[in-house]
């Protein structure tokens, strides 16, 4: 792996802002999904899981009920498998038994080229035919899309250049979390 150039990281969201943002996203979801009786929160492997779990926890507490939760791995559906850019290992898939006609909220940390989300959509429909699929991301790097994909819920939209890397360091409790931008000396490898 190429080494990062030593530059001061630029903070995008500090822990206070992150807390507010995640709670705001949770309330936006409640606004649109009411009691979540027909909705499933789905975290995307690997980096969407923790954010999805945080949102799931906030919403479950708010609504005083357990809402459906899933974990989705898209590595077998990537569009670059034949290029052998990197060795893929599968991560856990843990989807609810039935997603037919459900409202799915797909959750990832950073929306960059949109390729992960495209493969996640393929992975998702192999479990059944949801009624609709929405996308929630913490950070939207809006200038770098390679696919016609947009998030419905966005924590923060940022302008960034290709060689910058968005680092989402989520921790539970959230007080130790931070989102920051670093400069690398190679174009970003994020899918």
């Amino acid at each position: 792996m190429a080494k990062s150039i030593k530059l001061e990281p630029k903070i995008i969201l500090n822990s206070n802002q992150l807390k507010l943002t995640i709670h705001r996203l949770a309330y936006q979801l409640i606004e649109n999904h009411n009691d979540f009786s027909n909705s499933i929160i789905v975290g995307l492997q690997p980096r969407g899981i923790l954010l999805a779990k945080m949102l799931h926890q906030i919403i479950s507490q708010k609504l005083q009920k357990e809402i459906d939760f899933g974990i989705l791995d898209h590595s077998l559906y990537r569009d670059d498998l034949h290029l052998k850019n990197s060795i893929q290992t599968l991560s856990e898939n843990k989807m609810p038994h039935n997603i037919e006609n459900k409202n799915i909220i797909l959750i990832d940390d950073v929306l960059f080229t949109g390729r992960s989300i495209r493969s996640a959509l393929d992975a998702l429909v192999d479990y059944g035919r949801p009624r609709d699929i929405e996308l929630l991301v913490l950070i939207d790097r809006k200038l770098h899309r390679h696919m016609p994909i947009q998030a419905k819920y966005v924590g923060k939209t940022i302008d960034s250049i290709d060689s910058e890397k968005v680092n989402v360091s989520l921790q539970n409790p959230i007080e130790e979390s931070i989102v920051y931008l670093t400069q690398t000396n190679h174009p970003s490898q994020e899918p």
Partner: peptide
């Protein structure tokens, strides 16, 4: 897990 899904096939 994959071979126990409704659609038991991946495009990999």
């Amino acid at each position: 897990e994959i071979i126990n899904r409704p659609i038991k096939k991946v495009p990999s």
